[in-house]
Each structure stands twice: as C-alpha cells, then as structure tokens.
C-alpha cells in the first residue's frame, strides 16, 4: 500500500500564531484508504496541524501536498471544495441553527441537502427526530453526531477529525468511531487527532506521535502506544 502516492503529505511544515512558532517542521503522510492517528500530549500541536491541513492557518515554511499537488496557501473554502472535510475541535456545529439548517450549511461543497439529510438521519435517527431543534441545545454527543454527519453526506476525499472524543461518554466515543470505521471501509482516508489513544488505535493503520511541534515517531499503532506512555510521563 505504501507504494501508492500519499493523498495528503506534509513535509517540514512550519506554522505560527503571530510571533509564536508552533510547528517546527512536521512530516506526515496519509495514504488513500488509510487511517492515521495523530497522538500526543496537550499543546503538542495536533490541532494546529489539523488547521494547517484544512487551510485555516497558513504555512510559514515547508510543503503541503494534496494528491501530489502543492497546495500551500490554499483557503479553507477551496480546501473544503476539493474534498477535505475537517471537523474542528470542540465545536463542529452552528449552535444557533437548527439541525436541518446545519446540514443545509454543509452543502456549501456542492452536495445536495436531501442526500445529506438522508445519510444523517439513517445513521443517527435521533437527529431526524430533532431536526428542527437548535443545534446548541443538543447534547454534546448529539452535536458530535451532527458534526460527523457532514462527512457522511458530502462524500469527501479525506476526513480530518480533531478530538472527536472530547467530553463524551466512552460508549458514544465507541459508536462514533464505528461510524468512522465504516466510512473507511467505503474508501475514505482519515487523519484523526486524539489525546487518548485507546479509542482510536484499534481502527488506525498508522500512528504518529507529536511532541513540541514535531512528529517524533511514526509507525505501527502498537509500537507507538508503548512510546506514548513514556512521553506522557515526562519523556
């Protein structure tokens, strides 16, 4: 599988918030149909890497390639239209729009509302029941379901998931990752950032460990898990 060209490739990527540089040369590849787990402690730069991939934060150095093409400086809306579906940390929904309106807003990439609604309501029937409720008044788990629904109906090429498990009960996390696993089985590639490795490692093909704005190790999930504990304990 590794002979294939990577779908998403970061080489020596640097990025900064104002004067503070946060990424100091990140190397990362996501191959078609694979799941890459980005692990690491708080402040390691996972979310920042995700923002760079989604086009929300410009690179200050290095290269971002999408399907082999250099796309440094791409805007988030163009990235979305090219098939990068990014679900940001914590708040992937518009709280003041209803469930249905959230799905409607998600059609900005060219999908049809009817398709999106069908995909979302079949997978998460609760959303169908609550379709006219404001997203802000849904429970945390339901909000994440809604956020994930965007990936279901818009047919993206690659899915960027940031901290899907944040603040959710373990059972719901498991269900969410089941959904992700299904999407992967249908051919989607996924880059997922998680602090807690247990939830994501079972479905991951590759894992990368991020520390202080660099990918310090990457390889088979099992190997990385061993390194992970040492890095948490002050390594």
């Amino acid at each position: 599988m590794n002979e294939q060209a990577p779908l998403l490739e970061l080489t020596g990527v640097r990025a900064a918030y104002g004067p503070i540089q946060v990424l100091h040369g990140v190397d990362l590849r996501v191959h078609p149909g694979s799941v890459v787990a980005l692990l690491g402690p708080n402040g390691g730069g996972k979310s920042t890497t995700m923002k760079v991939c989604a086009g929300l934060l410009p690179l200050t150095g290095g290269e971002l390639r999408l399907a082999g093409r250099r796309v440094n400086g791409i805007t988030a809306q163009d990235a979305a239209r090219l098939g990068i579906c990014s679900i940001p940390e914590g708040r992937g929904v518009f709280p003041n729009l209803t469930v249905r309106e959230n799905l409607w807003a998600a059609t900005g990439t060219g999908a049809r509302l009817a398709d999106l609604e069908e995909a979302a309501y079949t997978r998460f029937p609760i959303l169908g029941e609550r379709r006219h409720q404001l997203a802000g008044s849904l429970s945390g788990g339901q909000q994440q379901m809604l956020a994930l629904s965007r990936a279901l109906g818009t047919d993206p090429v690659i899915l960027l998931l940031d901290e899907l498990s944040m603040g959710l009960a373990p059972m719901i996390v498991t269900r969410m990752y089941e959904t992700v696993a299904q999407l992967v089985a249908e051919g989607l590639s996924v880059l997922v950032a998680e602090q807690f490795a247990r939830a994501v490692l079972p479905i991951a093909d590759t894992a990368a460990l991020m520390l202080h704005g660099r990918v310090v190790a990457s390889g088979r999930p099992g190997d990385i898990e061993d390194q992970l504990s040492s890095s948490y304990l002050g390594g």
């Binding site: 989604a54 086009g55 929300l56 805007t75 988030a76 809306q77 979305a80 239209r81 579906c85 990014s86 679900i87 940001p88 708040r91 992937g92 929904v93 518009f94 709280p95 003041n96 729009l97 309106e101 959230n102 807003a105 998600a106 900005g108 990439t109 060219g110 965007r150």
Partner: peptide
C-alpha cells in the same frame, strides 16, 4: 445566520 457564530466553520463548509 451561521456566519456570526463561527466564520471559520463556515469556511470549512466551503462558504
């Protein structure tokens, strides 16, 4: 209506 909540999320949605 979504724009005021989160312009970044709007961009992620392709707007």
């Amino acid at each position: 209506r979504g724009a005021v909540d989160d312009p970044d999320l709007l961009r992620l949605n392709g707007h």
